[in-house]
Design a protein around this nucleic acid. Structure first.
Lengths: 341, 341
DNA sequence: CTGTTAGCGCTTTCAG
DNA sequence: CTGAAAGCGCTAACAG
C-alpha cells in the first residue's frame, strides 16, 4: 500500500490532477457525475491528502503548537485535554512541547514549532520576560501567540488564566470567616503567579484587620521535593518552638498543597482540628485525601478551550484583514469546600 | 519579519540555493570560507528551515503520532512525558491525539496522522481488535506502528507494557502473606487488561488454596463515576448483609483504587484495620492519601521512553533494509508498600 | 567547489 | 466544465 496521490487517481480515471483536486474539495466548477465518480474512487481506496504538500502550497498547516512546562502536571494535562478537544473540532491538530521551566529549552521549542510551520503557538511562558521580544516578533508577523496560565506576561495578545489575587483572597477569607486568624502561607519562589496569590492573601488579612507576620510566610524552591518537605517541617517546628503554631495553612500551588496534607497526616497533626488546610490544587483525587481536601481548583479545561478559540479568532481576523482587539480573560477559580478547614 | 528562505539568503550572498542548502547541512563539498559566511548570515537572521518543504522532498517528517485515550489520565500523561522527552533528544516531535475510547475516533486520528505524513505511530489501542487490519496495513507499508499499554493487541510489532497478570498476582500474594483471606476484587468491564489482572488474582488464590468466590468479584462500567461509586457501596452492603464482608480489597485500575479509598474513608471504615486496600494506581498523590496508599505503580515514563526507542529502531532498520525482529517487552510494575494493607 | 535542473504533491490562476 | 502551467521551499543528481 503506497500512499495514494492525486496523480494516481487522475491516471486511473483518465482525468487531470487539478480536476481531482477540485472534485475532492467539492468545487462547484466540477460536473456532478465526475465529482461522484472521483469521490467514490477516493473513498474506496482510502485516499488521504498529503497535508505537507497542501500546506507548502497554501502556507497553512492547521497545526497549533502548544508549550507547557510539564505535560504530566495535572493542571497542564487538563488544559491540554481542553485544547486537543477544541482543536479536533476545528480540524486542527496540536504539537505539544515541554519547556521544563527552562528559557533555553523554551526558545528551542519555539524555533522547532516555527520551522514546522505551525499556524500559531499557545504558550504558558516559563518566566516573566524570557523570550519576550522573540515571541513579540513572531506574533507581529506570521505566527500569532496566545498566552495561558501566566497571564502577566508582557506580550500584547490574548491571555487566558485565572485572577490569582482574587482567588487567593477568597480562600483566605474563607479561613478567616471560620475564625482562623494565625494563617501560615506556603508558596513558591517569587514569580508573577505566586506574587499575585501572596497579594490576595495579604489583602484579605488587611481587610479583616489582621496583621501580616513575616514569619507566617514560607517561600519554597519547588524544584526538589525532598527540600520542600524539609522546609515545611522546619517551619512548623520553628513556629511551634516560638509558641506561634498556625491554626491554618494556605498553600499556593498544587505540589505544596498535596505534599502538605501528606506531611500533616504523617506528623499525626489532626486536620482541621489542630491545623486547617486550604490550597490551590487541580488533582482529581482531592476527595480521596483524608480528610477530603478543601481546595481552589482552576477551570483548566476551560482555560485550554478558550485559549484555542482565541487563537482561531486571531487567525480568522487576520485572514479577513480585520483588526483584533486583544483582551485578557481572567476566569474565576472555584473553591471546593470539603472537610480540611 | 517574513520567514527567511534559502532563496533569500542566496540572493543576499550572491550564491545559488543549493549551495546554501549544502552549507547549512555542513556538507564537505562546500568551501570552508563560504560555509562560514553562510552559516553566520543564517544565524544572524535567525534562519529556520522550512520543515514542510524539506519533508515533502525527503519523505520524512521527523514527527511521530501518538494516540492515547485521554491525555489527562495520569498514567498516560506520564507516558507522554517519557515519549516527548525521548523524542526531543532524537530530534523528533510528537503529535498527540485522543481516541476517547472510541474506535471511530481512533480511526479518524490514524487518518489524520497518516495525512500529516508522520514517520510512525505509537498507540494504546482502544479495543482488542478495532482498526487492526488498518493498522496492520500501515505498519506493513510506510508507517510503522508500536503498541504500548494494551500489549495483547494482535498486531505483529513491538509492544511495550507491563505483565498485568504477574503484577496482580504479586499484589494478591502481598495481601495473603499478611493473612487477608477474604479478598474482594474490583475491576472494570472485561477487556484484555482487566482479564489479565483477574487471572493473576485467581492464580494467587489458587496457589494459596483459597477458593475463589464469585461474590468477591465486582465488575464496574468505568464510564460514569457516580455509578461506579454506587456499585461499590452496594457490593459492600450486600456482602455485609450476608456476613461475608471482605477483609481486604484489591482494585484493578487507577480510578477504582482512588475512588475506593475515598469511599471507605467516607463510610468511616478504618483502613487497614477493618478493610485493607491495595490497588493499581499511578497518581503522584498516593502518599497523601490517609493512610498512605499501598499500590501497584506502572513504570509509565519508561514505557513511553521504550516505545519511542523501539519506533526509532524500526525506522533505522527499515532505512538500512535490515529485518526487524519484533518483541513484546513486559516490564515489572512496582509494588509500593505504604500503610493501607 | 559551485550552479543548473528537476521534482516531491498539491492548489491556484488562467485558457480553452 | 476540464486541463495546462506555475510555483510553494527544499534537496538530490548531475554538469561544469
Amino acid at each position: 500500500m503506497k500512499k495514494l496521490t492525486l496523480k494516481d487517481i487522475a491516471k486511473a480515471l483518465n482525468l487531470s490532477v487539478p480536476t481531482i483536486s477540485k472534485a475532492l474539495s467539492d468545487s462547484h466548477e466540477i460536473n456532478k457525475d465526475t465529482k461522484e465518480k472521483i469521490v467514490a474512487y477516493a473513498q474506496q481506496h482510502n485516499y488521504q491528502h498529503n497535508a505537507l504538500a497542501r500546506s507548502l502550497k497554501t502556507g497553512k498547516t492547521n497545526i497549533i503548537g502548544v508549550i507547557v512546562s510539564t505535560i504530566s502536571n495535572s493542571f497542564f494535562s487538563e488544559i491540554l485535554e481542553g485544547i486537543e478537544e477544541s482543536s479536533l473540532f476545528q480540524h486542527y491538530n496540536i504539537i505539544i512541547m515541554q519547556s521544563r521551566e527552562s528559557p533555553d529549552i523554551e526558545k528551542k521549542c519555539i524555533d522547532i514549532l516555527y520551522s514546522k510551520g505551525v499556524d500559531g503557538i499557545l504558550i504558558s511562558p516559563v518566566s516573566h520576560d524570557a523570550n519576550l521580544t522573540y515571541l513579540q516578533q513572531l506574533h507581529n508577523s506570521s505566527c500569532p501567540i496566545v498566552i495561558f496560565d501566566r497571564i502577566n506576561y508582557g506580550l500584547d495578545t490574548f491571555k487566558i488564566g485565572i485572577d490569582n489575587k482574587k482567588a487567593a483572597k477568597k480562600a483566605t477569607e474563607e479561613l478567616i470567616s471560620r475564625n482562623y486568624r494565625n494563617i501560615l502561607h506556603i508558596t513558591g519562589l517569587s514569580n508573577g503567579v505566586t506574587n499575585e496569590r501572596l497579594a490576595g492573601f495579604q489583602d484579605a488579612l488587611k481587610i479583616n484587620k489582621i496583621t501580616f507576620q513575616e514569619s507566617n510566610l514560607l517561600r519554597c524552591d519547588l524544584s526538589h521535593i525532598q527540600i520542600v518537605e524539609d522546609e515545611i517541617l522546619n517551619k512548623l517546628d520553628e513556629l511551634k518552638n516560638q509558641h506561634k503554631s498556625p491554626d491554618a495553612i494556605f498553600t499556593a500551588t498544587d505540589l505544596l498543597t498535596n505534599r502538605t496534607i501528606g506531611l500533616l497526616a504523617q506528623q499525626k497533626i489532626k486536620i482541621p482540628e489542630e491545623i486547617a488546610l486550604i490550597g490551590f490544587s487541580n488533582t482529581n483525587y482531592a476527595f480521596s485525601f483524608n480528610p477530603p481536601l478543601t481546595c481552589i481548583s482552576q477551570p483548566a479545561k476551560k482555560i485550554g478551550k478558550l485559549a484555542f478559540e482565541k487563537m482561531i479568532e486571531i487567525l480568522e481576523f487576520r485572514l479577513k484583514k480585520r483588526e483584533v482587539v486583544y483582551e485578557t480573560i481572567t476566569l474565576d477559580a472555584d473553591i471546593i469546600i470539603r472537610e480540611s478547614i
